[in-house]
């Protein structure tokens, strides 16, 4: 509607395709290609193979897929409960307290992840809270980093929820707990699912805090990818990255499906 001539539009679209291709499409394509590459010395790989994937599936890398999934799931679940709880109870507070606490809940998202890891190392390396070297400290790091996102998503959902639903429910005789379980939470479900999906994705890709605190037996995908590429094994690194990307995308799309069906939109 801004450019009316056909040729003008074509030029603009080619320009768009160029930017989009170079910045967004090429990286994804090239990772996919390299994860399947046999040898790559020229412009294009000399052959294709699924060897890197089978290597990855057999080797220690499989453990990092597992570690990432478990960490992501537990940290996201905890963040979801805590974020929803926080958002719901903040609603009952006065405006000033609400603003202050709301801000505090967002701060973890603003602090560099490496510093979060450093803080956990400093705080939990001595008794009585000796967590350094445990899996728990990885979970905690991920929980802290994603808690702001779940809180933000749920708060946004609550803000959009018309108070009419809950008020009508009350007037019909629903006590607060019944109302929360049968009205508020189901209506928030799309936001809860979105929050969980985003947390999970962020946790799966988390690197900064994890490299600070991870114990030897709990190497997450990003750490594993880094050590592979650092050793020069970039094809295996690419294969593992593809697994990470695929898992993230499947997760996000799947959750979107579920939400769409649940809300019927």
């Amino acid at each position: 509607m801004l450019v009316w001539s056909r040729s003008g539009r074509l030029v603009i679209w080619v320009f768009f395709a160029l930017i989009f291709g170079v910045l967004f499409l090429a990286p994804l394509a090239v990772i996919l290609l390299s994860s399947l590459a046999d040898q790559w010395n020229g412009v294009l790989p000399s052959g294709l193979t699924t060897e890197h994937y089978t290597d990855v599936a057999r080797g220690a890398a499989w453990n990092s897929v597992k570690a990432s999934f478990i960490t992501g799931f537990l940290a996201s679940a905890l963040a979801l409960v805590s974020g929803t709880w926080a958002a719901l109870s903040l609603r009952l507070q006065g405006a000033a307290l609400k603003r202050l606490l709301g801000l505090l809940f967002f701060i973890p998202s603003a602090v560099p992840s490496v510093s979060v890891g450093l803080g956990l190392l400093v705080a939990f390396s001595h008794p009585p809270l000796l967590l350094n070297g445990t899996i728990a400290i990885v979970m905690i790091a991920h929980f802290v980093l994603i808690s702001a996102f779940t809180f933000g998503n749920v708060s946004a959902g609550l803000a959009r929820l018309s108070p009419d639903f809950e008020q009508v429910a009350s007037s019909l005789g629903a006590r607060p707990a019944y109302r929360l379980w049968h009205v508020t939470l189901p209506l928030l479900a799309p936001y809860l699912v979105a929050a969980f999906g985003l947390s999970f994705a962020l946790s799966m890709g988390e690197l900064g805090a994890t490299v600070m605190v991870y114990p030897p037996g709990w190497v997450t995908l990003p750490v594993s990818i880094f050590s592979l590429t650092d050793r020069g094994d970039i094809f295996a690194g690419a294969a593992l990255t593809m697994i990470l990307v695929a898992a993230t995308l499947i997760l996000l799309l799947g959750l979107e499906r579920i939400t769409a069906r649940a809300t019927g939109s």
Binding site: P27, L28, V30, I31, S34, I225, G237, T241
Partner: peptide
């Protein structure tokens, strides 16, 4: 599609740039 880049790990791009 561009939006989903928000959810992808940041180092992916770096890795891709190495190949590119």
């Amino acid at each position: 599609l561009i939006d989903t880049f928000i959810a992808l790990p940041t180092f992916l791009v770096t890795l891709a740039f190495t190949f590119l």
